[in-house]
Design a protein around this nucleic acid. Sequence first.
DNA 1: GTCTATATTTTGATAGAC
DNA 2: GTCTATCAAAATATAGAC
Lengths: 209, 209
Amino acid sequence: MAKARDPEERISARNRRIIIKAGIEIFARKGFDGTRIAEIAEASGLPKANVYYYFSSKEEIYTAIIAHLIAGWDDALKYISPEREPAEAFRLYIKAKLDYARRNGAESRLFASEIIQGARFLTKKDRDHMRRVTDVHVGVVEGWIAAGKLLPVDPRHLFIMLWASTQFYAEFEPVAADGLRKTRLKIEDYDKAAATISETILKGILPAS
Amino acid sequence: MAKARDPEERISARNRRIIIKAGIEIFARKGFDGTRIAEIAEASGLPKANVYYYFSSKEEIYTAIIAHLIAGWDDALKYISPEREPAEAFRLYIKAKLDYARRNGAESRLFASEIIQGARFLTKKDRDHMRRVTDVHVGVVEGWIAAGKLLPVDPRHLFIMLWASTQFYAEFEPVAADGLRKTRLKIEDYDKAAATISETILKGILPAS
DNA sequence: GTCTATATTTTGATAGAC
DNA sequence: GTCTATCAAAATATAGAC
């Protein structure tokens, strides 16, 4: 029994992974309603019926991807912590968020697409989790302000500026590339973005030395 | 003839306008591939065949909307001009962009959706136009830097920060509202956003006085 | 200009042989 | 676990009466 189950589980896990990966790309480009299972099947190299063998509906693939995506975030966002100096913390945070977005472009666009389309499949649990993480970060920034390490600034609007600026390059790459007069964005463009965002915002919120 | 054509043209113009308006909402929520003509027809209060009477295909409705949208932008973006002082220019620009996004939420989301989905229907003409407008603004900022009115900063990345920050609230309203711990965004939230973005970025790029 | 009816194609999903 | 064949529903688009 154990002998027989192992390879089956490997095949199962592998195919589920392939389907998820193909789904990320296609859902990102077409949105939930615009995506057809046949496309995911084709991109996965599987017949359509096999996709239905692993997932019972389009929605099940989609929500599996969303859950997988949110789980992958917390790592990238651990730098805002009270024991750090704010300048270093924000530099690391900005770099980590830009890196994550660049390396997971399709996931980032899929999430953006889900939000633009009204966050229909974001569970209450996911949203509560994101709100709590934000609250913790807001608390850290308020602590820095109280300690005189940061100028008074609304921490929630500050984080929105950071989210927006760091996500834009991956989510809206055609516009970002046009704006930079490049055909495609390279690592150097992301580095330059990190430098510009960090320097501008830090000068804007650090007390004059 | 003239007597008969006038009212007909009014009906025609009116129905085209109604279809465009309904299309903006639905394309914004579902993307191009996810939108069905039947939905646009229903939201317009017209039978599906009437939509086909005014537009010969889904793509024709979509591209008409994109063109209409780009035409509406230039007005909102006229504040970056060399005769202004940079502080005032950026404040007005940030306010105008946030206002436009708030008042034209569906259009903003539709455009964001189009970019995320790969800018498939943005014509070369539209992209060239946007690039040229950006180049003019970049030139103005470079002039201010050369005149010592702004600290050295990469103008293209600066504009991306401004685009991203000002568009985020309308495009990703569910996330912005969660981040601010509100259920829905109000005008006051947009005002506070304008203040935070303006103050932070201006402190970041204006020379110490 | 309007709208019912319909042709044609595509879609999500399943049955059932291997 | 895999995959061909297929269904029922829904989609785009058009014909043609009013």
